Simulated scan of single mutants.
Amino acid sequence: MGMNVDFTLGEKRKEKQWKYQRSMLRTLSINDMKKDVQRRFFAHEGEETVSQLYLQDFCLDMGIDTFLLGAEFARFGYYGESEYKVMQRCPEEINAQIDQTVAQFTAWLNLDEAQANVYKDVATGYIYEWWRQGFDEGKKRYQLKLH
C-alpha cells in the first residue's frame, strides 16, 4: 500500500526550504567558521574554559543560522539587488542574532557595559561576515540552477 503523500502547500514549501538549506550547508566549512570564532572572540584567551566552550558552540549556532539567512535572501541578489540593499530586508533577524550573541557573552563573562560594547562590534563583524558568505553561496547556487 503506497503512502499517501498529500502535502499542503505550506508543507511543500517547508520541504523545499529544508532541501535548499541542506544543500547550502554542504557548502559551509564548519572548520573555517570555528577558526573565525577563535580569531574574533577568543584570540587572547588561554586554555579553554567551560564558558568558552559553551560560547564557541553558541557562536557556531548563530553563524550557521546567519549563513542560512543570507542564503535564503540570495535570490534578491541574483535578481540584481546589492548585498547592502538585500541586508536591509532582514534587519530584525540580523540584529537579533547580534544582540543574542552579546547577551550570551555578557552573561557568561560578567561583562560591564563598556566591555559589552566591544563584544557588540566583534559580534556585528562576525554576523555580517557569515550572512555575506551564505548570501554569496546562495547566489552562486541560483546562477548554477537557473542557467
Rank of each mutant, 00 (worst) to 15 (best):
G134Y: 05
D136E: 08
M87Q: 13
I64H: 01
D99H: 06
E137G: 01
L109P: 00
D6C: 04
F105R: 05
F76W: 10
Q56F: 12
N117H: 04
W18C: 02
I98F: 00
L60A: 04
M24S: 11
A43N: 07
Q104K: 10
T49A: 03
L111H: 01
W130V: 10
Y78T: 13
S82I: 06
R141K: 13
L146A: 03
A71P: 08
Q56W: 03
K14S: 11
I98G: 00
L109T: 01
G138D: 03
P91G: 12
K34G: 05
I30L: 12
R13C: 10
K85F: 14
E15C: 03
L60N: 04
G125M: 08
A103F: 00
K85S: 15
S82A: 01
G77W: 13
V50E: 15
M1V: 07
Y142F: 14
E45H: 10
G125Q: 15
S51R: 07
V37F: 02
Q56R: 15
F135S: 03
Q143P: 02
Y20R: 06
L25R: 13
Y84T: 13
F73H: 14
D65P: 02
L28P: 09
K35S: 05
D32S: 10
M24C: 05
A96L: 13
A74H: 05
R39P: 01
R26P: 03
E11T: 08
A123H: 00
T124S: 15
G77F: 13
I30Y: 12
D57N: 15
A107K: 06
N95S: 11
F135V: 02
S29W: 09
L9H: 06
W131N: 02
R141I: 03
G80C: 06
I94N: 00
E93R: 10
D112I: 00
A74R: 08
Q115M: 10
R26K: 13
M24N: 10
M3C: 07
E15V: 06
D65L: 08
W131I: 09
D32Q: 07
D57L: 04
Q56T: 11
K140S: 14
N4R: 13
R89M: 15
W130T: 06
G2V: 07
P91E: 09
I94L: 13
Q97M: 08
A114H: 03
K19L: 13
R13V: 15
N117M: 09
D99V: 01
Q133C: 08
S29G: 05
E72S: 14
K85D: 10
Q52G: 04
G10L: 12
A74T: 05
G77K: 06
E45I: 00
E47M: 09
E81P: 04
E48G: 01
W130N: 14
D61C: 02
Q133F: 03
M1Q: 10
F42Y: 09
Q100C: 07
V86Q: 04
Y142M: 15
F58A: 02
F41Q: 03
Q100S: 11
F76T: 02
L144Y: 06
K140P: 07
A96W: 03
D112G: 04
E81R: 09
Q100A: 05
